[in-house]
């Protein structure tokens, strides 16, 4: 299924104030692959993610998703294909109740009310939050908000799942549930995180970004155990691999 390939060719991005956040990033992610994205604070992880679904457009270079190049005309289509889970669940959940929030995407896709209902139920069931369906978001715990935020994206049946720091603010149990959930998804996944154990658990491939460039790209097991490489990037060995 070649149409789920995500490809970046020499992508540059500068913010209006002149900060160069991405300086020539190229990679290719195949269908069904899980890729962890990590790097020091300010290395450009979030900027990179925002370039993947048209929240930002590269100043130079090409982003293409399943052979469709990302530009202003294809933006809507790309947004449907790339499900984006934002770092802060409070920003992601903007509707007054969980149901309406999860339904927001499907409604905008123009589905019938019955189809919307079905999508919402399925998505909430996947993340184990069906019982929260009528709650307002401000009455959910942080872990619940996170799971519901994932459901809002799942309800749109995306081909590719992009997540920005999915496990920050989660307690260990919620984090473990999230990891199991992510492992269960067959989607192509791109997960930006500093939680290297999470990347090690969920992703088979890992990309390290440094100053807007790719510092390393390879199998997660290999990269995340390379102590010198990690330390050069303000990272350290995953906790599970550290000797005490």
């Amino acid at each position: 299924m070649s149409h789920h390939i995500l490809e970046l060719k020499d992508v540059y991005f500068s913010y209006p104030d002149g900060t160069e956040a991405l300086k020539g990033i190229s990679f290719r992610i195949l269908h069904g692959e899980s890729v962890g994205l990590t790097g020091a604070n300010g290395a450009g992880k979030t900027t990179l993610l925002m370039n993947l679904n048209g929240q930002l457009f590269p100043t130079k270079g090409l982003v293409s998703i399943g052979e469709i190049p990302l530009n202003k005309n294809t933006r809507q289509e790309i947004k449907r294909k790339v499900g984006f889970v934002f770092q802060r669940a409070n920003d992601q959940l903007f509707m007054p109740t969980v149901y309406e929030d999860v339904a927001f995407g499907p409604v905008n896709l123009g589905l019938t009310p019955e189809q919307v209902d079905e999508r919402v139920t399925n998505a909430l069931e996947t993340v184990g939050c069906l019982h929260l369906i009528h709650r307002p978001p401000h009455r959910l715990s942080e872990g619940q908000k996170n799971a519901v935020a994932i459901a809002t994206v799942m309800a749109m049946n995306p081909d590719i799942l992009v997540m920005d720091e999915p496990a920050s603010n989660l307690d260990p149990k919620s984090r473990r549930q999230l990891i199991n959930l992510l492992k269960g998804f067959a989607h192509t996944k791109i997960i930006a995180s500093h939680d290297l154990d999470l990347i090690l658990d969920v992703c088979e491939r890992c990309i390290i970004i440094k100053d807007g460039r790719i510092a390393a790209d390879g199998p997660a097991e290999e990269i995340l155990l390379n102590k010198t490489l990690l330390e050069e990037n303000n990272l350290e060995l995953p906790l599970s691999r550290q000797k005490r």
Binding site: F84, F86, N108, T152
Partner: peptide, 9 residues
């Protein structure tokens, strides 16, 4: 941005 990402028009 979150709204746009989910097809808000």
């Amino acid at each position: 941005q979150a709204m746009l990402s989910r097809g808000f028009r």
